[in-house]
């Protein structure tokens, strides 16, 4: 329970970040959604032993965080809670793949370790990109951007409703859950019996709420259509933003910048 409560709190904080007013925040959300997708594609399209090619990609999250004035530690803390599934699956790479790919003096590093490290770096980059997208854009704007990029309106509306009522309902279930905890001693009273009636009640209340919301919508002239109220423009600065970053990503993807830099340095100081 605590984890979801924290997550909801983080959700509020992340959403508040989107209220910032930097040049990045002001860009049309579509530009930011597109470039995030290009970034993720460029990152994950590297082959699995690629580690050094991935490192230069950190330029994107770092620059975005700085330009948009996001709190780096907050983002970092969220990224570091890596998806457990990734770690659980990735950790088998060193077990199954023991061919030595890299010799540094007496130390042989197997392909498995390299690909495991590569998986972790990918994870940090891709998850970080998603957080940054929300932090500089906001959930609502991301949904609206996706809608204008072709997502069906029914689904966009669904996302907005869902997001709106997460806050209301998690508070409600948090209260119910606390009330049960206070009246149960240890594990007693926390079994499936009390659970199902509690969740069942929550479900019925949720259902009634939906009926009231529908009434409130009808009362304000809802006829099944949602009308867009605000428009933003995909202008020159958006095009510049998308072009500049995509060019960089594709360059970084095709050229191992780390390798180039490294040979330059090791070549200079043999």
């Amino acid at each position: 329970m605590a984890s979801i409560q924290n997550a909801v709190l983080d959700l509020k904080n992340l959403d508040l970040l989107a209220n910032g007013n930097s040049a990045i925040h002001r860009l049309d959300a579509r530009a930011k959604v597109l470039i995030t997708l290009v970034f993720i594609l460029c990152v994950v399209s590297n082959n699995r032993y690629e580690l050094t090619t991935l490192l230069p990609f950190f330029i994107f999250p770092v620059v975005m965080i700085s330009l948009a004035d996001l709190p780096p530690l907050f983002i970092l803390r969220k990224i570091i809670l890596l998806c457990p599934f990734v770690v659980a699956v990735g950790i088998f790479n060193p077990v199954f793949d023991q061919v030595i790919l890299l010799q540094i003096g007496p130390l042989g590093i197997s392909g498995g370790w390299i690909s495991f490290a590569s998986i972790l770096v990918r994870s940090i980059l891709t998850v970080g990109a998603a957080f940054i997208l929300v932090g500089v854009t906001g959930f609502t704007a991301v949904c609206q951007a996706l809608e204008r990029l072709g997502m069906p309106q029914v689904f966009a509306v669904q996302l907005l409703f869902l997001y709106r009522y997460i806050f209301v309902l998690t508070e409600e279930s948090g209260r119910a859950s606390r009330a049960r905890e206070l009246r149960s001693c240890g594990k007693k009273g926390q079994g499936i019996g009390s659970y199902s009636s509690m969740v069942g009640h929550l479900l019925l209340r949720t259902w009634q709420r939906a009926e009231r919301i529908h009434m409130a919508m009808l009362a304000r002239g809802f006829t099944g259509e949602f009308h867009a109220s605000r428009q933003s423009r995909f202008g020159a600065s958006e095009i510049r933003f998308v072009l500049a970053w995509s060019t960089l990503f594709i360059f970084l993807r095709l050229q191992n910048v780390s390798q180039l830099l490294g040979s330059l340095i090791t070549g200079l100081f043999p």
Partner: peptide, 17 residues
């Protein structure tokens, strides 16, 4: 009653309809 993403959108919901 307030089901839209922002206050503006919510107040605009009726007039747009």
């Amino acid at each position: 009653q307030l089901f839209m993403p922002t206050v503006f959108d919510d107040v605009a919901f009726g007039p747009l309809n």
